[in-house]
Structures are given as structure tokens and as C-alpha cells.
Simulated assay, not measured.
Amino acid sequence: MRAPVPVDEPARLAALHDARILDTAPEEDFDDIALLASEICGTPVGLVTLVDADRQWFKAKVGLDIDETHRDVAMCAHAITGHDTLEVPDTAADARFADNPFGARFYAGAPVVLDGTYSVGTVCVADNEPRELTDAQRRGLRCLARHAAVQLELRRYARHAGEIADRLRRLDRMKDSFLATVSHELRTPLSTIRGYLEMLLEGGFDGETSLRFLSVMQRNSDRLLRLIDELLLVARLTEEGVELDVTELDLADLAHQVTAGCRPLAEHRQVKLRDRSRGPVPARGDAKRLTQALNHLVVNAIKFTGPGGEITVDSTADGEPALTITDTGVGIPEEDLPHVFDRFYRCASADVMAVPGPGLGLAIVKSIIEAHHGTVGLESEPGVGTTVRLILPNR
């Protein structure tokens, strides 16, 4: 039976579309929510769903192979008519769901509510056998739905902050841009940690599930530390400049070390990382800082290259010592190219690829290379890829 349309449907859809989450790439935070929903409730299916005007789209899924369904057959379309958890112990005994095409006999969905008002989707679970949730499982499902709402709201706030930052950049008011961006980047992992702490304090979870909670919290703690390190470095670069410990070095050897260190990440994302550097490439510079710059570029290339893509790192001693990183990633739109080295600038492709970060990496790279009296250039074409070339002066 088709679900009734919520009374606030136009505003509900506006809130959903404003989050710009539909049809985005998978993200670990949402994947974790779907997995934990399945594990907490003991069901084969766990989902994070979003209900659009005429479809139900799955942002994260466990135990299901499809990406979306028509809204007319979506059980979650019934759940979003209010803010309470909808639990159907046996769909065969419920006229609304007796003829559901998916064969689910049990369903429970907790609405994902934005602005405390609009139910835009659910965190839900399903089983092919009739059953009922325990009180602890219901609490866990509601807590996960609140966590999903926080993730969506932070995404929306971040984009609005970015739009404000664009206007402020033209007025050279980077202070406000800094506050908006960093606030988002700090709140995201902190909110995640807080959400899982709340669930742990509620209790009722087995040891394996608790360890998974702690793993998510540890990953977000590491993310906070990396962000703070980058902020401190940018502050130091701005106020004091870059202090270099200049020695004789081999750029090809630095390339070997960085590609070796980044290869596990590339393999995890199913990206080929090729090291074509042939040494020696003699140069003078700060090995630690140059390694930091090269690592930023390679990791950035991995993040913006989809599965099956390729990244090549090369070095040359012809003329001036140089390093080149070429990827087959999403590329950068022409209008973004003049700003990619600006502090706190995030191009649109960062949201498309669901890449977190405050937009400091390329600014740090530029500061390090310029401190060496070198140059950094970038060429990119959307859908083709990006090439970054670092050139150091002759010794």
C-alpha cells in the first residue's frame, strides 16, 4: 500500500536536497551506521535510506544488492510520516506491507530527522522472518538514526560555510572562512565519537560490537589529530615562514619512499600506484618537508581517483630537479583552478567524491616548495585527470 505523503512534503524534500547527499559515493561513517544497525538488531539487512520525491535511495547498505527502489513500494516511505520508530513484526499480517515485493517479513525503521522537523529517511533493518526488537535494540536504532542526522546536517553546514567562504575570499576575509571550515572539520569526528560513546554508555552490546564502536572512535580521534597538526603547521607557515634543514638529497629516493608508504591506501581504494622514478635526481632541500609535500600530493591523488584508476609518480634530473604526479581521477573544473592552492579552499569534486578535509593540503605543498625557491604547477581536466609538477632550483 502506498504510504501517505507527509504534510510537510515540500519543505521535507527541500531539506533533503539541501543536504546534497543523494547519489554521492559511499562513506565510511554511513557504512558503519548500516553495519551496526544490522549487528545490533541481529538482522541480515541494515540500511541508511533517503526518501526522495519518487524513489528511496540507499546511502549505505548491508545485505542488499540494489541501490534504490520506487517510493511506492518503500516501507521507509511509511516511516517518514512521523518521528517515531516504525516496527512491523510480521509484514504478512499488516495490510500495508503484505504484498511487498522484497519478501521481507520483519521491518523496523527509525526516522532520520533534520532540523528536528523533517524526516528525510531512515536507519532501518529487515529480516525474512517475523520477529520483534528488544528495548535495547530499539534504543540503538534510534541512536544510529540521530547519528545519521548529525552527519547530514554537518554536510549541509559545511557546504553553506564553503559558499560563505567564497564570498569572503573575494573580500579577503579569510578569518571567517577559517572559523566556518575548521568548525565543521572538528565537529564531524567529535560528533561521531560522542554518538558512539552514548551507545556504549547505554550498554547492552556484546564485546565484538563494543570493539567496533571503539575502532570507529579511534579512527575519528586520529582524524582530529591530523587536522590539528595541519592547522598548527599552517599557522607556523603564515607567521614564521618555513624553517628548512637543507641537505644533499635524491628526489627519486624520496619518491620511492612516499609511494611505498602510500601503496596500502591505493590498494585499499583499488587504485594503481606506479613509481617510475629513476635515480639519482640530485637536489638540495629539506628531506622531511619535501616528503611531507609529496605525501600530500600522492594521498590527494588517491582520494580523487576512483577504483580502477592509475597514479604515476616520476622524477627527472633533466635541467632542474623535478617531481611529477599524474592521476586519472575526477579532475578539477576550470573555474576552480585559480583557487586550488588557497588555504581552506574545497572544490566541488571534494563533495562528489566524499573527501573530508579543510582544504589545507595544496596550500601546505605550495608553501614548502616556495620556501625552497621552487615552483609548483597544476594542470587538470574534468573526467581526464590531474598533473602536479614540483620543480626545485639547480644546486
Rank of each mutant, 00 (worst) to 15 (best):
V281Y: 08
S315L: 06
A363V: 00
G359V: 00
D327Y: 14
F344C: 08
M353D: 00
F341I: 03
L297H: 04
A350S: 11
Y345K: 07
S315I: 08
A301S: 13
D336F: 08
I332N: 07
I311M: 05
G306R: 11
R284K: 10
G359Q: 01
D336K: 06
L323D: 07
I302S: 01
G306D: 08
S315F: 09
L362E: 02
H296W: 05
L294H: 10
D286I: 08
P333Q: 13
R343V: 13
T305A: 03
E310I: 10
A317G: 11
R289V: 05
L362I: 00
A350W: 03
E335T: 14
A293Q: 03
F344R: 07
G319I: 05
P338M: 06
A354P: 01
S349C: 08
L273E: 05
A363N: 13
A322C: 09
D327F: 09
E334R: 15
N300Y: 08
G285R: 04
C347V: 05
D351T: 06
I325Y: 11
P307K: 05
V299S: 03
D286G: 04
P356G: 00
G319R: 03
G309F: 10
R274L: 15
G279I: 02
P282M: 10
P356Y: 00
E310R: 15
A283D: 06
V298C: 04
H339L: 13
R276K: 14
R274V: 15
P280L: 04
G331I: 05
L290K: 07
D286S: 10
D351Q: 10
H296F: 09
A293I: 02
V313P: 06
F304P: 00
D342K: 03
S367D: 15
A283Q: 02
D314I: 06
G359Y: 00
G309P: 03
A350N: 05
L337G: 12
S277Y: 12
T326K: 15
V298A: 02
T316A: 12
R289P: 02
D286R: 09
T305M: 04
V365L: 01
D275L: 08
L273G: 05
P282Y: 13
N295H: 14
R278I: 06
G359R: 01
L362K: 04
L337W: 12
S367E: 12
Y345Q: 01
R276V: 12
T328E: 09
V365H: 00
L294G: 07
L290S: 07
G285P: 01
D286Q: 08
G361A: 14
E335D: 14
L362D: 02
P321S: 06
H296L: 04
A363M: 06
R274Q: 15
F304R: 05
N300C: 02
V340D: 09
E335L: 11
V340W: 11
E334L: 12
A301M: 03
R276P: 10
L290N: 03
V365S: 01
A287I: 11
I311F: 07
K288Q: 15
E320S: 14
R289F: 10
